[in-house]
């Protein structure tokens, strides 16, 4: 998002990620509108951490996220469905292997 916001009523959309506590990863919690990054962070604090939900917040311009599309779902995800050998449980561990 450029620093000079367009002169319209519509503020850009931001995706919000909150880390609940140290050691956990940031998790997507929702989105919001804000004119720029600093205010997006303020708004995220007010909207998503009112009840001590987090110790760290990331905001990301929604436009910066490239997402897979629902129409492509089959092509993207179905090929993985019948490849059981990609799961570690597919393999039998030899009895002698102690520390695997």
């Amino acid at each position: 998002m450029s620093a000079s916001a367009p002169e319209s009523d519509a503020w850009p959309l931001w995706e919000v990620f909150v880390r609940a506590k140290r050691g956990l990863s940031h998790t997507h919690v929702g989105s919001l509108h804000a004119p720029d990054a600093a205010l997006a962070l303020h708004n995220a604090r007010d909207l998503y951490t009112r009840r001590q939900e987090g110790v760290s917040i990331w905001v990301v311009p929604a436009s910066a996220i490239t997402a897979s599309s629902p129409e492509e779902r089959d092509a993207f995800f179905d090929p993985a469905a019948d490849k059981v050998y990609r799961h570690p449980t597919f393999y039998e561990v030899p009895e002698d292997v102690e520390y695997l």
Binding site: A34, N43, D46
Partner: peptide, 11 residues
């Protein structure tokens, strides 16, 4: 101006 700011001032 936006619902986000409603929340900010309300907070």
């Amino acid at each position: 101006p936006q619902i986000e700011e409603d929340m900010a001032l309300g907070n």
